[in-house]
Nucleic acid binder design. Structure first.
Lengths: 241, 241
DNA sequence: CGCTCTTTTGAAGAGCGTCAAGGCAAGTGG
DNA sequence: CCACTTGCCTTGACGCTCTTCAAAAGAGCG
């Protein structure tokens, strides 16, 4: 009977979604073919270069999005300019803060990225009708909450070396272009971004990179390319044990 | 018609829930009378003295709970003993991490408290059948995520004085026994807990209390009782302006 | 090759941590 | 009722880590 429904023309999964769904396990996975059709009518794919602001802190959020490729940083700023990156999002993460008028932070691409945006009301309507969708969104927010709290420990209780090692470990385990064991990768963030993520200055970040390199925990090529010979040694440097 | 349904015996709201529901706006508000009856059969109210561990980090969570009174601190610890409070929860917050076997952090009462516990599977079954319940849980996790990320800015980018002022401001605005404008209150945390929440030492916390007192931003009586003559001045000291 | 932007390196200083002593309030026992 | 203990908080002196300010060294690009 499911077979029959799939044969109905209007319930075919849209072409744009097909490749996406295959590669990722994002929130769209909770939607029926009909809902995907409806959503895809109002959604647009965008290619963004690194450093593009998707939504500003305190701004009205007209749209939500799914990250298809690249890294997006969530930043919170103080009136005097001090800023802190409060979250990093990777594909296939959902991007947005449902049920709020204003965004509590700004979202900016850290790397070149590709996102699939759709109107905010579109999603909120779908959420009301689709418990599975809300369930997926809830799961992601729980995951982000766990990660945020993990990072609070890093920010509050680790020293500079442990912070930098923690960041490298985070990237090695989350950002996985095509490496086998995550021991070779390109950093998606500049030194300035890393500093804003770790609550340090760029100078301190740079010094700790140098120190980890001299200690043989990592190798660095062209500032961005990192090789980790022994991931457990890095983990130990991060104080994760 | 609603009147008629209330008269049906099996759908009466349990006595234990009635007073609770009236006072709080917790997750139970999403449940039908029948579900409340079912839940209350398996739930137990507990009075806990300050410093009681509700669930340990990495432990199996047998039960979830609602906070009826008091403050619960969520703590994450490093292998060498360094620890960080990653969240404070007040009544009527929900306490627990759905869809995870182990708790990512320990939960301990900071003050004397009263909680209403129920088996984990009980809740997870109800969640599957009650979209409204999951919606409420989702809303709370979004709120906690916003708060956690706010605190990341405090931990990463504020100095000791701003951190302590931020903490006082948080308590003044969240913890509201019976004060009119939140300018007089008792601290729910010891100096050691405050230090663990702010990523500082108790000595630094103490020095900043003294400094804020000498500057006239706050008055302190008996270590725990705080008076804030001008909440906006405190807010300014916290760098929130 | 020269320009700009990013990253590294260096030297000096501030802020917070560490260690140690002392104060204060509540509880205990003679 | 008073000496003593205990737990929590405050204060002081000193040192270390990280920031700040400054300049040099790379990296990317026309």
């Amino acid at each position: 009977m499911d077979m029959q429904r799939k044969d109905i023309h209007s319930s075919e999964i849209p072409v744009v979604c097909r490749a996406c769904e295959a590669r990722h396990g994002g929130v769209c996975g909770a939607l029926s073919p009909e809902q995907l059709v409806e959503l895809s009518k109002h959604s647009t794919r965008k290619r963004l270069v690194a450093g593009t602001e998707v939504v500003g802190q305190g701004e009205d959020m007209g749209a939500f999005a799914n990250i298809m490729r690249g890294v997006v940083k969530l930043t919170r700023m103080m009136p005097d300019g001090r800023q802190q990156i409060v979250g990093l999002q990777f594909a296939p993460d959902f991007l947005g803060r449902p049920f709020a008028e204003e965004s509590p932070h700004s979202a900016e691409t850290a790397t070149d990225a590709e996102i699939c945006t759709f109107p905010r009301q579109m999603l909120e309507r779908l959420v009301g009708r689709t418990p599975d969708l809300e369930h997926k969104l809830y799961q992601q927010s729980l995951k982000e909450l766990d990660e945020a709290r993990d990072w609070m420990l890093t920010l509050g209780r680790k020293n500079a070396q442990e912070k930098v090692a923690s960041f490298l470990f985070l990237i090695a385990t989350h950002y996985d272009p095509e490496t086998v064991d995550g021991s070779v990768f390109d950093l998606p963030l500049s030194r300035a971004d890393i500093a804003d993520f770790l609550g340090l200055t760029i100078e301190t970040v740079s010094r700790q990179f140098t120190r980890l390199r001299k200690d043989g925990v990592i190798q660095i090529e062209n500032n961005r390319h990192v090789i980790v010979p022994d991931i457990e040694r890095l983990q130990h440097s991060a104080g994760i044990d």
